[in-house]
Design a protein around this nucleic acid. Structure first.
Length: 571
RNA sequence: GCCCCGGUGGUGUAGCCCGGUCAAACAUGCGGGCCUUUCGAGCCCGCGCCCCGGGUUCAAAUCCCGGCCGGGGCACCA
């Protein structure tokens, strides 16, 4: 045993600068030799002893000794396998039998926060060879009123993200189904029609007392239910409640409401055909069962709803799906809230649901974020109950890796300033690859003409003030003579790139002439507009993601006759 | 007020269920270097974390209790 202890003590000492830590040594020994665990108590003094001896040796002695008793230590080493971000296995998941669903209310655009549930649902369904269902939970024609356009957008955005649903359902098509189950529950005495005012009801509920309608017989309940359906009761006058435990510790789950009346719903799909509408918990509970959903992914805010919905599952003897709640996902400083977004659009602050400052999927797409980047981000964030606020850097880093190889390079000069160059009297064609790592993609050409200025960016002015020489990238080296906000004067120095490198001269981009280009840069709540010149040879197309060298990656948003508009993605 | 969740470097995640191989991993960020006709990419080095306090144990990021902090729910919203 002493030998074993000595070995680990030496290893520990060698690994940690000559000083072994007895606790770590014991841990290591017991970790790798579980059969010694019962003897832990005897081991401690022994280890302390040996560690003390080891620590009094010099580093060289330790190493020599270790080499002598355990030479393998020096052979193995390294081999650090990188494990990819991967989702953990799903509980109770059987191959081919996993059915997940994404159930948005089409009352606003799909955003990154919603995407978390969608991506997880899709990824797991795919992983287990199951089915992914899109269900529009559009049962509130009043407060969170669905709008036709969002039904389309959600499908579009989902497909853009690569999450094509296997089935699409609309809760608003399924009212008859909810009615049937509601009647069933009324007959079973598990639900009742409550005509209390909400204040009255809340008071009783908080005291744990039943409402007077609760224990009326099923015949009466069905009679009342008719009156809800046929219009005898008006909006706000009656509601179907699910019986629960009146003393449930959380008053919020007691006797929760299942269906209510909306007088003139004017629902975008169902019109005025129905006046009794289910609430979220009722519709969702019924649908998840009816559609055979096995695994539910949803936000933490729904944790309590599971408790509510389980009552129905218990009454019908159904098995509740595996429900996984995740925390909220947001991006640093980006507004995701539908109501705030809507308000901002109405006030004219945002350009629309795809304003690049927003966190909607459409906005991210418009900025040049790739769907894979969003998926990767969400998968790396994983299933966690705590909220996650991702930084832009993080998303940008993932996205950059994806777009760097595909984005062609161009020179864009923001806030151009003319630079007059003396001392070079021939035309000179700069030939620059579209992508430095992929010359096979071709070249772009920038022609220098004597007597005509080239344009450089105001952003580089500081650099020019500090340097005596500078290289115009892919052209030649110049000596700076005069610098002002209006004009820069320079003198040709040399052509060779090597000279610039040798002297570590800074390199800036430039443009002999160009087309007008504006770049929209989202900066927090501001949308900064930068205007400048894009090299005239740039054959960019709408939707293309390119890199403006030394400026950043952008997505081309519009190409007009005389002007290109781009949206800034990230550095 | 009542009821649920959570808390690991600046940020995000892994580890926690089942205590030891965690002197805590990965990515991003930041600092430095190499390479490179971009301040891009790539490569190398460095920085930086278990919310606090008790308890259990030979041993706690991990289990238990208390506190603090954060998020969410308490709608005839989803």
């Amino acid at each position: 045993m002493e030998k074993v202890v000595l070995k680990y003590a030496l290893i520990n000492a060698v690994q940690h600068g000559g000083k072994a830590n007895p606790k770590a040594v014991i841990g290591k020994i017991l970790g790798e030799n579980p059969e010694l665990r019962p003897k832990a108590r005897e081991l401690v003094p022994l280890v302390n002893d040996i560690v003390e001896k080891v620590n009094s040796m010099s580093k060289e002695e330790q190493e020599t000794k270790l080499r002598e008793i355990y030479p393998e230590f020096f052979e193995v080493k390294e081999k650090k396998e990188e494990k990819k971000h991967e989702l953990p296995p799903l509980p109770k998941a059987e191959k081919g039998k996993v059915i997940t669903r994404f159930a948005p209310n089409p009352d606003g655009a799909f955003h990154l926060g919603n995407a978390r549930a969608a991506v997880l649902s899709y990824e797991y369904a795919k992983r287990y060879g199951g089915k992914f269902i899109l269900r529009f939970d559009d049962t509130d024609p009043k407060v969170k009123r669905p709008e036709p356009i969002f039904y389309e957008w959600i499908i579009e955005d989902l497909e853009w993200l690569g999450l094509k649903p296997d089935e699409i359902h609309h809760a608003s098509d399924r009212l008859e189904i909810y009615y049937r189950y509601a009647e069933e529950l009324l007959k079973m005495g598990k639900a009742y029609v409550c005509t209390c005012s909400s204040e009255q009801f809340r008071k009783r509920r908080d005291e744990g007392k039943p409402c007077p309608h609760r224990d009326l017989p099923p015949e009466v309940q069905l009679e009342e239910w008719r009156k809800m359906l046929d219009g005898t009761y008006k909006e706000g006058e009656a509601v179907v409640r699910i019986k629960t435990d009146l003393n449930h510790p959380n008053p919020a789950v007691r006797e929760w409401p299942a269906l209510r009346i909306i007088d003139n719903p004017d629902h975008p799909r169902a019109g005025d055909k129905y006046r009794v509408w289910p609430l979220y918990n009722f519709a969702s509970a019924i649908d998840d069962h009816e559609l055979g959903v096995t695994h539910i992914f949803r936000g933490q805010e729904h944790a309590e709803n599971e408790t509510r919905q389980r009552y129905i599952y218990r009454y019908f003897g159904w098995e509740y799906p595996v429900a996984i709640q995740h925390g909220r996902l947001s991006i640093e400083g980006v507004i995701l809230s539908k109501s705030k977004t809507r308000r901002g659009i109405q006030e004219g602050k945002y350009l629309g649901w795809d304003d690049p400052r927003l966190g909607t999927i459409r906005a991210l797409r418009r900025r040049g974020i790739l769907p894979e980047a969003i998926r990767e981000l969400i998968i790396s964030v994983g299933i966690k109950k705590s909220d996650a606020t991702i930084s832009w850097d993080n998303l940008a880093a993932i996205n950059r890796k994806l777009i760097d190889p595909i984005a062609n390079r161009y020179f864009f000069v923001a806030d151009p300033i003319p630079m007059e160059i003396k001392g070079f009297n021939e035309e000179f064609m700069a030939k620059v690859p579209l992508h430095p790592d992929h010359p096979e993609r071709g070249y772009r050409e920038l022609k220098f003409i004597p007597e005509k200025p080239v344009y450089i960016s105001k952003d580089d002015l500081e650099l020019l003030k500090k340097s005596e020489y500078i290289r115009l990238k892919d052209l030649f080296n110049v000596k700076i003579l005069e610098v002002s906000e209006k004009k820069v004067t320079a003198e040709f120095d040399s052509i060779e790139y090597e000279k610039a490198r040798e002297h570590r001269w800074h390199m800036i981009h430039w443009v002999p002439e160009g087309k007008l280009c504006e770049v929209l840069i989202p900066e927090g709540d501001e949308l900064v507009l930068r205007e400048g010149l894009l090299e005239s040879d740039a054959n960019v197309k709408v939707d293309e993601i390119v890199q403006f060298e030394r400026f950043g990656f952008v997505r081309i948003d519009a190409v007009e006759e005389e002007k290109v508009r781009a949206i800034f993605a990230h550095k």
